[in-house]
């Protein structure tokens, strides 16, 4: 397990008066705070609350409208990001093994070879998600759950200090969810920073020590039990989903 054993306590994520959005309309409004390095945080909230937007911004795929995100101290740590609906071309003729092997990009890059040690690591990652025997299958023949297992194997190989998961267990059966949650726990034990957008409160309460409840504005953030109270959840639900096309310029931003 040498490739995965590295403890990386470098992945702190700081939000400084962060506003994210599309076309000037905020989806995340004035977020302040820090996700500690090595913590395991669930991001919950109603649809349209800005959860996916927040992950996208941490991954660097969206630049803030205002404020900033500071990641790590000093050298920027590696980030692995699993989007909600990864735009993977399932019809492309590529084998599970090759899809998982993409996780090595960070080390092998454009031209680097994949040696014996890496091949062993790919095998281990595929075994860790229970897909042994599927190596040569084309990705188009996988079920939804198997595909998610393959993507988790790729995340394993990315060996990142920060792992971002956007609704990783949506439309996934209980057994696959349980297996993949074991991987999340393992990443937490290895002191990687894991942030996951989730809808299943039961899973959040059981597995995730920290929770950020967000509904455009952060509603509550901290220890899961103290965040997921009926009052907080009710307040989150009251958030207006559709944005106001005639919204005025934010006062807080001008101040």
């Amino acid at each position: 397990m040498s490739l995965f054993a590295a403890k990386r306590r470098s992945g702190a994520i700081r939000f400084e008066d962060l506003t994210l959005g599309y076309d000037r309309h905020p989806a995340v409004h004035h977020l302040d705070g820090e996700i500690a390095a090595g913590s395991l945080t669930a991001v919950v909230g109603p649809n349209g609350a800005g959860k996916s937007t927040l992950l996208k911004a941490i991954a660097g795929a969206l630049s803030p409208l205002d404020g900033r995100i500071r990641i790590g101290t000093g050298e920027k740590p590696r980030i692995a990001y699993l989007p909600q609906a990864a735009d993977i071309d399932r019809a492309f003729p590529i084998a599970v093994y090759d899809l998982v092997a993409m996780g090595l990009w960070g080390r092998s890059g454009l031209f680097g070879g994949i040696g014996r040690k890496q091949q062993a690591a790919i095998g281990e990652a595929i075994a860790a998600v229970g897909l042994t025997g599927f190596e040569r299958r084309a990705i188009g023949t996988l079920s939804g759950g198997q595909m998610q297992r393959a993507l988790f194997a790729r995340l394993l190989l990315q060996d990142a200090a920060i792992i971002l998961l956007d609704e990783p267990f949506t439309a996934i059966d209980a057994r696959t969810t349980a297996d993949l949650l074991d991987l999340v726990r393992r990443w937490h034990a290895e002191e990687r920073t894991v942030v996951a957008v989730l809808h299943d409160m039961e899973v959040v309460r059981r597995v995730f020590p920290e929770t950020l409840l967000i509904a455009r504005e952060p509603i509550a953030w901290g220890e899961t039990a103290s965040v997921l109270t009926p009052e907080n959840l009710l307040e989150a639900r009251r958030m207006i989903e559709a944005f106001d096309p005639h919204a005025a310029v934010c006062e807080k931003a001008a101040a």
Binding site: G60, A61, A86, I94, W105, G109, I139, Q158
Partner: peptide
Amino acid sequence: RPLVLECVDPGFLRSVS
């Protein structure tokens, strides 16, 4: 390698390179 990656999963390629 990058061409195949760009075809299969452009989002992933963007996230690593």
